[in-house]
Computed example of a mutant assay.
Amino acid sequence: MHHRVIGRTGRKVSEIGFGAWAIGGAWGEVSESDAKAALHGALDQGTTFIDTADVYGDGRSERIIADVMKERGGDRPFIATKAGRRLNPHVAEGYTRANLNDFVDRSLRNLQTDCLDLVQLHCPPTEIYYQPDVFQVMEDMITAGKIRHYGVSVEKVEEALKAIEYPGVVSVQMIYNIFRQRPASLFMQEAKKRGVGVIVRVPLASGLLSGKMTNATTFAADDHRLFNRNGEAFDKGETFAGVPFDVALEAVERLRPLVPQGVTMAQFALRWILMESGVTTVIPGAKNPQQAKANSDSSDLSPISDESMQAVRDLYESKIASHVHHQW
């Protein structure tokens, strides 16, 4: 497992992290024992970065992480969580000092720690990025010893560019994958200039880039890949990276010839992300130790050839960009 420094924190983290949304909820049923086994499997492979949120399973994800930390003992990995999405309705007016402190206090209890490594504002409304008072609240939490660092999780590139104008923002979490390439055109360079870490979520486009889905694939009623395809519950870009399912399946078939022998498509997709030097860590989910190991192994793959990188770019521009590039 290779490591990269996350922004100005000075902390090195594994370039393949563990995304803990799937073990919290909204991805179909995952038992607590399976969730813990998956996380143990990732940590056994050298994963040192875990990403979660207070709303994943209404805190279930955070509590499972805390239990695994207790079971393992020793040094804790870098654990990032998020705050803001407990608001109902989720509106800018709710991002008050009292609410944010309440959310962080709850995460402190769930994660059984006295200080959180990183708290990310959880895809807040766009107007929040123009409200310095909100970012001052996060600064004050550092002073109070509740958090070590803060960052943002964004939907849009424009939000990310605005967020990194705040000197205290050490990281940005965003969607970046073969089907969502816009961040590479400007944002990654700006993040590097400012020493901002980049955490990549939805790296496999909700499983599409595993190459295992077909038109006959079905999803459970509690799986966002069924109930959020058009943004019914949250931003539709979080589901299949916002690409229409049939269009994505066709693109996946055109990707298959580019995948080297002995490498899965999912590993190829993860390695493609790591070709971008502005990326700090990628956070695929895993529901079992085998998936966790396969994800981790992508860190040790050889670089993707220039020819294949260009072929992926051409595919994006010809088949995918018209559906997503202007939206996020």
Rank of each mutant, 00 (worst) to 15 (best):
H3A: 13
R8D: 10
F18E: 07
G25K: 06
E29P: 01
H40T: 08
G41K: 09
Q45L: 08
G46T: 07
D54L: 04
Y56S: 06
D58S: 13
S61A: 13
E62P: 11
R63F: 01
I64S: 02
I65L: 05
A66T: 09
V68G: 10
K70Y: 06
G74Q: 14
I79C: 05
A83F: 00
G84K: 00
R85W: 11
L87W: 07
E93R: 14
N101L: 15
L108G: 09
C115I: 15
D117I: 07
E127L: 03
I128H: 10
D133S: 13
D133A: 15
V134N: 06
M138T: 07
D140F: 01
D140Q: 12
M141D: 02
G145A: 00
K146I: 11
R148T: 01
H149D: 10
V154E: 01
E159A: 11
A160V: 02
L161T: 08
P167G: 10
G168P: 11
G168M: 06
G168I: 06
G168T: 09
V169R: 02
V170R: 10
S171Q: 10
Q173P: 08
Q173T: 11
N177T: 01
I178T: 04
R182D: 05
P183C: 05
L186A: 08
G195V: 09
G197F: 10
V200I: 15
V200L: 07
A205D: 01
K212T: 12
A216C: 02
T217A: 03
T217L: 04
T218Y: 03
L226K: 12
F234T: 00
F240W: 03
V243Y: 12
A248N: 10
R256V: 11
V259L: 00
V263D: 00
A269R: 02
L274K: 04
M275L: 07
S277Y: 05
G278S: 03
T281A: 14
P284V: 07
G285Q: 06
A286V: 01
N288A: 09
Q290I: 15
D297G: 01
D297R: 02
S308D: 14
A311P: 05
R313P: 07
S318Y: 06
S318T: 13
K319C: 11
I320P: 00
I320L: 04
S322I: 08
Q327T: 10
